[in-house]
Design a protein around this nucleic acid. Structure first.
Length: 271
DNA sequence: AATATGCTCAACCGCAGGATT
DNA sequence: GAATCCTGCGGTTGAGCATAT
């Protein structure tokens, strides 16, 4: 037996909302709020609509802080970045874009960005005629191709060359979504400025975490696998570094002076 | 001008999972 | 613990508009 429908479809109006219905819903919600129950709301507000439909209309269209209109390039970059990391979790992605709804982001992805990404991937494939044996390092090339493939050549160059990094540039994998918030990872330039970055590796699954922020990312995994690094073992119960429940027990100190070396290496795959 | 095709986006659908009874 | 209710989510649809033929 299937789930009972949320409302009697023969008794509710469906399809596009009229301006009158919009006004009724907006006025009711501004005066009374949802009352914690969308299902009962349409009857109270005097609307012949399903509660779910009212909720959707409010969240996606009538809310005062909704931003309508085209997406900026910066918004596109954030969407591409987060999609590369967390996939189609539209609500999480939308939470990082002021005034955008999950429906908006999803539509924008399906109609514009997906094609843009595919075009970029095709471009990169046809123009990067190298093979991995040409590269004098053990960089995790698969992970890189997956996460960075939507970059244009300028962005790509910027990521590889600390001197060219635009501080405002959103680079795939440099942002991490966690608990619906966006965190910025350390760029190569920041690592150079700081002199070192401390990364901790989970001994079981190999995940690598920025020790100071507690954020783990494949970006750090790539750093460690791409660069020479100094490693020392720290006991899992060391109170200065790890909580007792943590599996992170290897501290990796990535030295900034190794970075120019790896930049040279990466130049081999630029367009 | 008429028709076909493509694109956009609001809206719907069904499911998962948390909250409540 | 089971049943039910409700919300939130992601996938999908289809009406309406734009563009091409």
């Amino acid at each position: 037996m299937g789930r009972a429908p949320c409302c009697d479809k023969s008794k509710v109006k469906r399809g596009p909302w009229s301006p009158e219905e919009d006004n009724t819903l907006k006025n009711y919600l501004e005066k009374n709020g949802t009352g914690g129950n969308w299902i009962a709301l349409p009857q109270k507000a005097g609307l012949r609509r399903c509660g779910k439909s009212c909720r959707l209309r409010w969240l996606n269209y009538l809310r005062p802080d909704i931003k309508h209109g085209g997406f900026t390039e910066e918004e596109d970059n954030i969407i591409l970045t987060l999609y590369g990391q967390i996939g189609s979790r539209w609500s999480v992605i939308a939470a990082n874009l002021q005034g955008r709804t999950d429906n908006d982001v999803k539509n924008h992805w399906n109609t514009k960005l997906k094609k843009k990404l595919m075009a970029a991937e095709n471009n990169n494939l046809s123009s990067c005629s190298y093979n991995s044996s040409d590269l004098n390092h053990n960089f995790s090339i698969n992970s890189f191709s997956r996460n960075y493939s939507n970059m244009d050549s300028n962005t790509f160059t910027s990521l590889m060359d600390p001197n060219l990094i635009n501080p405002n540039l959103v680079i795939p994998e440099m942002l991490v979504a966690e608990s619906d918030q966006l965190f910025s990872l350390q760029s190569l330039m920041e690592i150079q400025e700081n002199g070192t970055i401390q990364l901790a590796q989970d001994q079981e699954d190999g995940y690598i975490m920025d020790f100071n922020s507690g954020i783990s990312s494949s970006y750090y995994y790539d750093l460690v696998n791409g660069f020479d690094f100094q490693e020392k073992f720290i006991g899992a119960d060391d109170p200065n570094y790890f909580s007792s429940s943590s599996n992170y027990s290897t501290l990796v100190q990535l030295q900034a002076n190794n970075i120019p070396h790896i930049d040279q290496t990466f130049r081999g795959v630029e367009k």
